[in-house]
Design a protein around this nucleic acid. Structure first.
Lengths: 344, 344
DNA sequence: GTGAAAGCGCTAACAA
DNA sequence: TTGTTAGCGCTTTCAC
């Protein structure tokens, strides 16, 4: 952008003003050892009065190191990702790192383009948040890029299951889904519909398998359980709810595979005059901040998103291990007002 | 971070492999003119097969220009800011810019530190989102820093704050607040409490003045209207609601100055068994994505957050004008289920 | 159309 | 403790 006469003071200028060499000035300002205290202080003072700000591009070019990380999310406006981002920004600030955030829009091509951009920016670490794809082929180009990045010294961590062969923070999607399904079964529900996102998403696949596990253990025929696939969003939840109501009118509970869909389901049920949980129970997954403030408040599975973001960055910052590390994080059932006994 | 032997191919390597000079290679890859088509294509092909990725630090050092922008938000986990960020990331991606996001936590000191970091990163533009402080002294250091940044060619735009003397996207807080207050008056409410954030925030001050304007026009004594000051958050909304119920039991409507507080108010009222809008009406401000999905759905004032983010970046990207530009954005009343006539 | 060479602002040997 | 100097990887005159 700036193309004109950009004129910020350089280290050179500070050094001259302070009457020292550029090397001494550099050492003073970067807090390195080997400078006498009074000299260092004088340099810092001159820099301050001149409004000098180090040029990090020059620093990282010369020093070879970077103090920045990249974060790839599907959509920052989505609470799931914004809470993860919050965690990442938090430790980033603590560690003095700058964080570059990019949208992928769940599109492998855009993901790849943004990945390249981050690599071009020579970030020290890349965090990828959000579900992977069940089909490894879709992520193959990204994998190639990432491995080259790691070979050249970059660190990578992902949140959620991926076929990327890197450090990962893994929420226990299967167990979480099993527990919320079990919760509905315990309440006495037998006619349960699942509102799911695309089965191409590993998150959906994992959660679905947890649900099926619980159903199977309860002696239900998994084949009989309607699984409605729609967008993994609020709008998708509405679509799914409408389909459930029209195609499976006897259903007494809708188990949505994320909170966003659950909110859409609640909204669609309200619009149709179906009482929750009186006629139909609804559950979600993730426990986004607003889940507890909905009416009825949403029964869901809590994932510590912010903490997952923190963990991912911390993992990436660690010395690289010989093989990929995994940080399992718990998924805890949170029972609130949207689930109850089925109508008798 | 990476300190070890980082070895990505350099432009030099590509040039050698393609059998051209480094200058020609540079021109070919940056899409500059003055290279024959076949040569350019050959260079690009070699670069591709070698996995070459330009080093943007080197590029901006040499070229003096940057393709990155900084975005300062109070807290990315807050939907208000995450929706703004979404807009910024959107045009950023379209324009091929990287976006660095920082938290300020509404703390002038952290804001200043993050600002310095962005400047050190030599971003081309800085976007600051979120309310400013009524007291200009609190922002004085930031203002100094920003002006130096602009003098050295940087662009700046703010969202929803004044006093900084830069391009600004300004939601019409006063008019929006006036219209929602008028809405409550039209419904017949006379005993209205306001749930406000700190009056130190310009956003709060502006919205408050709109509310008072409406009240005064209706012949109400503004001094009689209880204004409860609390955190400008969900938790603050709960606190405010509790205080309203205990100190001003006759109130028939709570006008919250943002949706976050309104959600807290709704939650507190529900906990106390107060029906909305039967006994008490509640209104918000911002229209965050979830506002329409609450129960009752929230009457509020819509701000086009995502669009505000887009506008701000577009403004910053424009050629700098002689004097600060302002993009006024409308604040539109959205009547939903949380407001109704006062109990008779 | 292509190449040689001079920096961009800084860090990090190496000398003194 | 301080200074000198050689790059980091790239863009961009200026010659050819």
């Amino acid at each position: 952008m700036p193309k004109g006469p950009v004129t910020s003071p350089r280290l050179q200028d500070v050094a001259e003003a302070a009457g020292v060499s550029i090397a001494t000035a550099s050492r003073s300002l970067s807090g390195a050892t080997g400078v006498s205290a009074p000299v260092a202080e004088r340099v810092r003072e001159t820099a301050r009065t001149m409004g000098y700000v180090v040029n990090l591009h020059a620093r990282s070019l010369a020093g070879g190191s970077t103090r920045s990380v990249g974060l790839l999310v599907h959509e920052i406006g989505d609470p799931y990702f914004s809470e993860i981002a919050s965690g990442v920004l938090g430790v980033g600030a603590r560690e003095g790192l700058t964080v570059q955030i990019c949208h992928t829009g769940r599109d492998p091509e855009r993901e790849l383009a943004q990945l390249r951009m981050l690599i071009a920016n020579r970030v020290g670490a890349i965090i990828i948040a959000g579900s992977g794809m069940v089909d490894p082929a879709l992520q193959a180009p990204a994998k190639v890029e990432l491995q080259a990045f790691r070979r050249s010294g970059g660190r990578v961590a992902v949140i959620g299951r991926h076929h990327l062969g890197v450090d990962a923070v893994l929420p226990d999607n299967t167990e979480g889904a099993r527990s919320v399904a079990q919760h509905l079964l315990d309440l006495g529900h037998r006619r349960i519909a699942v509102a799911a996102g695309s089965r191409q998403l590993t998150t959906v696949a994992d959660r679905l398998s947890g649900v099926e596990e619980a159903f199977a253990a309860a002696g239900l025929d998994v084949g009989d359980v309607p699984v409605v696939e729609a967008d993994f969003t609020r709008a998708g939840g509405k679509v799914a709810a409408d389909e459930v109501l029209s195609a499976h009118p006897g259903v007494t509970a809708v188990l949505a595979l994320n909170d966003d869909m659950a909110i859409g389901v609640l909204s669609a049920l309200r619009a149709r005059g179906v009482s929750v949980p009186g006629q139909v129970s609804v559950t979600g997954f993730d426990d986004v901040a607003v889940a507890g403030d909905l009416a009825p408040s949403l029964t869901t599975v809590r994932l510590p998103m912010s903490e997952m973001g923190e963990q991912a960055l911390l993992l990436a910052l660690k010395d690289p291990g010989a093989r990929p590390r995994r940080r399992q994080v718990g998924a805890e059932l949170v029972v609130r007002g949207s689930s109850g006994r089925p109508p008798s």
